[in-house]
Amino acid sequence: MKMRKIPVFILTGFLGSGKTTVMLNMLQHCKSMNATPGIVLNELGQANVESHLFQREKMVELLDGCICCTVKENLIEELALFLKKENEVDVLLIEGTGIANPKEIVEALKDPALMDRFEIQSIIGIVDCSKFLEYGSIFSSSKEIRDLLDEQLSASTLIILNKTDLVSEKVKGKAIKKIQKLLQGQTKTIETAFGKVDMDTVFKKRAGSFTVPAPDQANSRHHKEGHHHPFQAIKMENVPAIERASIEKWLHALPENVVRGKGIVRLKREGGLFQFQYASGRSHFTRLACEEKRETCIIMIGHRLPVKEMKESFRRLVLKTASS
């Protein structure tokens, strides 16, 4: 008897584009349709500070590495868990890190042990409209970032142009024009803010057969050595209660090559734990609903980070204020 294949939707997009927000909206839609979703979350850092958002879900976390290199074998192993009767799901959502090439996720799903049980429906590329032109410019971005953006976009079967509320019509028009030029107008692009998109559009099957080219020797060497990209994550643990104004001042003084930040912090005066997000040059704090055992930490992600200087400025601008 032929076994049912689990439909898979892959979410890709650069750091801070809004992948998790789109995934949360997709999860809500699945539940409204009485479908049981499974989730694979991949984080570049050593902790997933957003795991509380998915506490009741059937979830696999791949931490401290990118699907496209150091944890690919783990992905193949972990996906097998969804094939067990007690973990059966109706649909699988995979969110790669902001630096993952989705073609590598496709390659993992084409492993002989998995390809007859999972079927890719769509690769959904999420783009931060407020940063896209900057990241794609030879004057303000590195070749590694530009190449990565091109890889993520060219592999996508649907493009979600997110955060359009942060830009003018002129900037949005330029971003759309650049995307259409890269993709030759062959990939559907939808505009949105806060990841709010029509779910019938998102869940439409758009993927046919995928061909994954064999990596050349240079790429294979880079994968083994783990040096195929210049991105890194730094983590600051056991952060004491801090002033909101102090951490906001620190965040907005960070160098431009810091492109993403997230964490769990305790704010003075306001009391309680807060999750913070930093992307597109903006910070946002959300009070955690429950006071479960959550360690405070701050994770910053970027390329060629000045780690020593960042930690020193954190001590000077945030920790000294916290202790005073």
Rank of each mutant, 00 (worst) to 15 (best):
C297H: 01
S122M: 08
D198V: 09
F54S: 05
K235Y: 06
S209K: 05
Q180G: 06
R221Y: 09
K163V: 14
Q277N: 05
L273V: 00
N42Q: 00
M310W: 01
D150G: 12
E151Y: 05
E295I: 12
A241G: 09
F118V: 04
G136V: 01
E169Y: 06
I120R: 12
L11I: 07
A218Q: 10
S142A: 01
E256Q: 15
K31N: 12
F139Q: 15
K196D: 03
C129T: 06
F194A: 09
A279I: 10
V167L: 02
R294V: 10
G226P: 10
G125V: 06
K181C: 03
G16Y: 02
D147P: 03
Q28W: 11
I10H: 00
F54G: 07
P240F: 06
K205C: 10
N42F: 00
R117G: 00
E95P: 04
A113E: 14
H284N: 13
R260P: 00
S122V: 07
R282D: 11
Y278I: 02
E191M: 07
Q232V: 04
A241P: 14
H303V: 13
N48F: 05
T20I: 07
T20S: 08
E107W: 11
Q277M: 11
L114V: 08
R56M: 09
E77C: 06
G13Y: 08
L41Y: 07
G195C: 03
K293A: 15
V71C: 04
T164L: 05
E43I: 01
E256R: 15
R287E: 12
A113K: 14
I126L: 07
K181Q: 10
K224D: 12
A175I: 13
R4S: 10
G136R: 07
S324F: 06
I145W: 05
G208R: 03
E225T: 06
N101E: 10
R304P: 09
S313H: 01
G98K: 05
E243P: 11
K174L: 13
A279T: 14
T201N: 13
D200N: 06
K170Q: 09
Y135K: 11
S246A: 14
K268A: 02
A279D: 05
R244C: 04
R260G: 08
K235N: 10
K85W: 07
V258M: 07
C129F: 03
L81Q: 15
C129E: 03
A207W: 11
A175S: 04
Q152N: 09
K31F: 10
M236N: 00
H52I: 10
L63S: 08
A253S: 15
K58F: 08
G98E: 08
R269H: 15
Q184R: 13
G195Q: 10
K224M: 12
S51C: 04
